[in-house]
Nucleic acid binder design. Structure first.
Lengths: 158, 158
DNA sequence: AGCAAATAGGTGCGTGTGCAAATATCTTGT
DNA sequence: ACAAGATATTTGCACACGCACCTATTTGCT
């Protein structure tokens, strides 16, 4: 490399490096959360994400597609994820009245209960994982950037 | 909320928000990369990650454990991932001489070839995905932070 | 030297995932 | 009003993943 690279290639390499760092940090946090939520509350990270998203949603209900985007899952995975949580009595499906293709999903009392019990553990592990990541030189800058992030609007769910 | 929250709770909430943003951005990029690499080169993102990590490694070989950490995979998943790539002739296993438990993995000529063909597509999609993310208000700050990240040392692989 | 604990890698098994296709409903153009 | 296409959700299927367990080798302690 070097002499043969064009002008834009440096920027590309910086982005690739940034992506690797992002992925590494994401993996670290996700693995830590997965272990804690799984052992403590029989929840996967995506499952928790869905419950959490529902609890933050205005009106406290979301459509399958919204949920899919919020959890970065395919439609089919979302269907089965909602099935699992519904079978456990954590949420319910509610047919849309205005669009009969659509299905709303809403937390049950049990869902709220489990979430309120899982959230402290989730947050604690998150803080711990971020602290660990900050001790890794390659990840530290990104972790710090994360802390400085402006408190954004309700949800990146779109 | 408000009156009942202790002093540290705000910071926890900021971190949770940051994690959701990080996860959302990660999912967006990973999905885009997955589609491109899969359709264009029959590679998953993790498979590409492994090939890429090998190509960057000093001495161009890594042990299974290193690979597992670099790809954020379990040992078993790494074994099978390496099996797949080996069956396709993209890399080879080499027994360690000094530690007979260990196994090195090294790219073959074919592996280098495929990687050199896949990398431009990978990088292009990455740039495009980051641009798309920057257009989403909730993700934009993190994307910018990513760009400002210092060009770090070789690899966050450990 | 000798034995226990730690570490590296691989295998059986259950499960969650995405893709492609199927069904139902809405929307658009004529 | 109606056909054609878009959109929402679900199902069949193949496959990659993590966990628990297994074997082989190394390390540490006595």
């Amino acid at each position: 490399m070097g002499a043969v690279m064009g002008i834009g290639d440096d920027a590309v390499e910086v982005r690739a490096q940034g992506w690797r760092t992002l992925a590494a940090l994401h993996g670290l946090i996700e693995t830590a959360l997965e272990r804690e939520l799984q052992s403590g509350h029989d929840l996967s990270v995506v499952e928790y994400t869905v419950l959490d998203a529902l609890s933050r949603q205005d009106g406290w209900h979301m459509r399958m597609q919204q949920l899919a985007r919020a959890a970065a899952l395919s439609s089919s995975a979302t269907t089965r994820l909602v099935n699992r949580l519904q079978d456990r009595g954590l949420l319910t499906r509610i047919l849309c009245q205005d669009d009969r293709r659509g299905i709303y999903t809403e937390l049950t009392a049990e869902g709220w209960d489990l979430l309120s019990r899982a959230r402290p553990a989730h947050d604690a592990v998150l803080v711990r994982a971020l602290a660990e990541a900050e001790a890794i030189p390659e990840l530290a800058p990104l972790v710090e950037a994360l802390h400085r992030l402006p408190a954004a609007s309700p949800s990146p769910a779109g």
